[in-house]
Nucleic acid binder design. Sequence first.
DNA 1: ATCGAAATCCAAAGCGCTTTGGAAACTGGC
DNA 2: GCCAGTTTCCAAAGCGCTTTGGATTTCGAT
Lengths: 351, 351
Amino acid sequence: MAHKAVNLKMLSETLGLSQTTVSRALNGFPEVAEKTRARVVEAAERLNYRPSPSAASLATGKSRLIGHVVSLSTHIMINPHFADFIAGAGEVYAESGYDILLRLAPLEEQERIYLNLAQDQRVDGVVVHGPLTGDRRIGILNALGLPFVVHGRSDEEGSDYAWMDVNNRRAFHRATEFLVDLGHRRIALVNGLETMNFAERRRQGYATALAERGIRLDETLMFSGDMTEPQGYRATRELMALQEPPTAILVASVLPAMGVARALGEAGLRPGPDMSVLAFDDCLSFLEPIDTDAPRDIPYFTAMRSSIRDAGKRVARMLLDRIDDPRRPLESELWEADFVIGQTTAPPSRR
Amino acid sequence: MAHKAVNLKMLSETLGLSQTTVSRALNGFPEVAEKTRARVVEAAERLNYRPSPSAASLATGKSRLIGHVVSLSTHIMINPHFADFIAGAGEVYAESGYDILLRLAPLEEQERIYLNLAQDQRVDGVVVHGPLTGDRRIGILNALGLPFVVHGRSDEEGSDYAWMDVNNRRAFHRATEFLVDLGHRRIALVNGLETMNFAERRRQGYATALAERGIRLDETLMFSGDMTEPQGYRATRELMALQEPPTAILVASVLPAMGVARALGEAGLRPGPDMSVLAFDDCLSFLEPIDTDAPRDIPYFTAMRSSIRDAGKRVARMLLDRIDDPRRPLESELWEADFVIGQTTAPPSRR
DNA sequence: ATCGAAATCCAAAGCGCTTTGGAAACTGGC
DNA sequence: GCCAGTTTCCAAAGCGCTTTGGATTTCGAT
């Protein structure tokens, strides 16, 4: 193990070359002979030379860091979805030699933070998480000229931006239709926080599907909040206390869906035969069987399914592409959720 | 908005001071007059001066970045616990002007990564996640002289290190005793991966408690694996298929505990009256009610409880302290888990 | 008044990399 | 052989900060 890290100067001296040439050889510039390059690379390897990131960053203005600013105030809880998203994204970053700079901050501070990150050149790009409808972060980022990709959409007027989203409206439209086709008329919606754009779209899909089938919206069947297990539990208890309870529940995530199942269980009802439960499933890793060789069970929940980890990969890829070429045309991508039939949906029981 | 970011040189010129003085004024050195300092600070504020992190990093060798290297290979899944831990840690970092550098990498690459991070001076310290018994990362980090704190313990021989852990052995010892006191004799253990040190300790606590009460260990009642919901589900199904099923199940996390509950529900059994379920609860945010004003429900699971988010805070604090003064004596901290009685434990039903 | 100490401030040398603007050394074609 | 055109390489100027080693000023005490 070298006692003192070897730097470019030392390396170039050992080679009898200038720093310029060595630097260029290592960074793949065309104006250095292949033979020289090979020599340089070999020596670098042998001496365990590693360029200093901060020096490189100072000279180039690039940090090879991708900013992820997420909120975790008590209200908008840190969602477990984030871990899987970042798992996907991080894999892509690692392949390309980038690291994640993670900063935790409440939403109201994020605009300022983006401004600082941009001015400091601390990151080469950022991913916007959990966009609201009319999210102000997007305008700021466009003004700053900092490359970014939005996970989700914001419906921001006028400003264009790169995004990747799942078709939440369509997914919930289809899910609602599916339940109606099974014979359900009273369908509850346990939604995410509707200040979030994705939750708003989901409600729209649900609402239009009902309207198309001539079913009137019933506010008492609609819930909105952070997608936790207790949310599902509580909503279900309230629903079952209604004079005319629903026969089906549409849930925004598998997490609250588990709360739904727990509440039903306590009441002696079985998901499926007694109450249909249909959830949006982000394929969260801790809810999946790990052993992929094992015979795959029939999925428990009937669900609209879209891997958030894959979304993380895709968003990261898009962002790195933008960083490589900031003036490329803005991309956007809309994924359709898979519809998988599980054990928790059935025609309404008549009692 | 300034068109071009103002740097130290410009700032010092506007003030008619040298860069040295300005730098010292801003960094709180004693050899600058209070009056001058005030002037400098005011001007810095007014001109929106922000020191360049990479330049500062190059000059000082400090990056103000804390490394978190986590694995997410398919085998060791990215655990949802991580999100909450990082939520706590990130809060502390943010207060002190640090950011998280997050790198995803399989365990077998982590030693090399620490080496690189240290040589590159890319981070000022690291947190070690998920220590194994005899974890090699600890020796490497000690050799590198990179400040670090271990979340958990490793039982590494000889090498000393700073750590923070919950008393897993005691917690599972107490839990087992509690169940025995209720009259249970056949108690299953659905444990985490026992290559992880924490899971090993938990098994020890369980085993010694049983031994003390003269109950023979039964391998068919013991499971070990990634702590997912399906793990609990599958284990429970296997347990119920036994000729002589257990009357109580000790579970390593609330996540598999939910799988346990689901399996029981399907079989028409109710957690508590029909089968006792006792879980270790990390207070995962997505399983907690968010609205803390609401009357708090009686906790569902009887559990040993210790907030992983608080652990994140504490570990971060310890690490920052070490970075401030690397030669301070090594600290370690052992937390006792709270024991909370919920609705899922009862004396064994006799049937 | 005068002197040493304390308080202020500064010029300049790094930190380790990239990159500009040439210079020197090869080519091949005549 | 000689010259224009490539190749191949280099010296030196940044990038923006911290910090060393003084220089200058201020000030209380003699």
